[in-house]
Amino acid sequence: MKGRKIGRAIAAAGIVVCSLALLQRILTPKVTDGIIERALIAEYYEEAKDHDVIFIGDCEVYENFSPAVLWEKYGINSYIRGSAQQLIWQSYYLLEDTLRYETPKVVVFNVLSMQYDKPQKEAYNRMTLEGMRWSASKVKSIYASMTSKENFEDYLFPILRYHSRWSDLKLSDLENLFQVPRVSHNGYYMRVDVKAAGSIPDPVPLAEYQFGSNAYLYLDKITQLCKDKGIQLILIKAPSLYPHWYDQWETQMEEYAKEHELLYLNFLECTEEAGLDFQTDTYDGGLHLNLSGAEKLSNYFGRILTEKTAVTDRRGEAELAAVWAEKLAVYEQEKQKQYIQYGVN
């Protein structure tokens, strides 16, 4: 008798928990609301974890490099764990998270986020944090990222954060409840349209050019983690024309790379060599590369990876080649779809 009562109580609790979980799924914003970057971090977990190169960083990685080209031209199996305004502590914990599944030969980190020394905006935090699977790394990343107005419980139970969306729900909120459509190509966000770079505003003088101690702390942690795991860390600055990359910042990164014997590549200094033309290779006036630009840059970077790291050409591996054949077909399909969508020839 007592056992039956307990059983019923457990069943009742189960129904309540499931109902709230369903409600949470319904209320949580989805990629179908037009912000596809929400899905980038989570997509990684669906992948076979056997990558040679992992990129971490902000939009300057997920919009400027195409893993498809690295595979097609060099047989490099890579993945981009990028997200919008990914802060350096988020990059570190994403790397920690990634290393739970695999140990790549090379990690590539884009250094633009060194400019931020403290948490910035909740909306961007959630782009990175909500997609992470629960782990100690995610918990630490949440605590490192929260602004003064945020609470850990809101990440633990997003329904607490999104409850006010109930009046804005659309049919699309119900369409992709359990199956989120894939939006990236190994973390790469494709755009084929063109918007030439025009006149970029002059850089604004800053109060302080020295990167903050917290930013350096996490850069050190990334460096150390890679060293401990036998991974080659490459620091890069993507060739985005805006926001401005100050000479003082460049000097600090050059010195850091030299001190820690790391390869540092500022692609702003080799746009010509990479064949980039900001009249045709950007879709937003020089902030990010479009497909044409990302493919050129990836081709250029692939050669460097081949020459200066231990990555090897894996196109001869039948199983991996078959996986990539499927990926390339989807990549090509989206290219064609976007060419039509944006009226690009």
Binding site: V16, K121, A123, L160, Y162, H163, W166
Partner: peptide
């Protein structure tokens, strides 16, 4: 229990109503 959960979810949870999910204009 369900009603309590729904009320918790749907109500403003006090006066500290927060909005998120849009552009920077929706920043708390």
């Amino acid at each position: 229990l369900l009603a309590a959960g729904m009320i918790l979810a749907m109500s403003g949870c006090g006066n500290d109503e927060k909005v998120i999910g849009g552009d920077v204009s929706n920043a708390p």
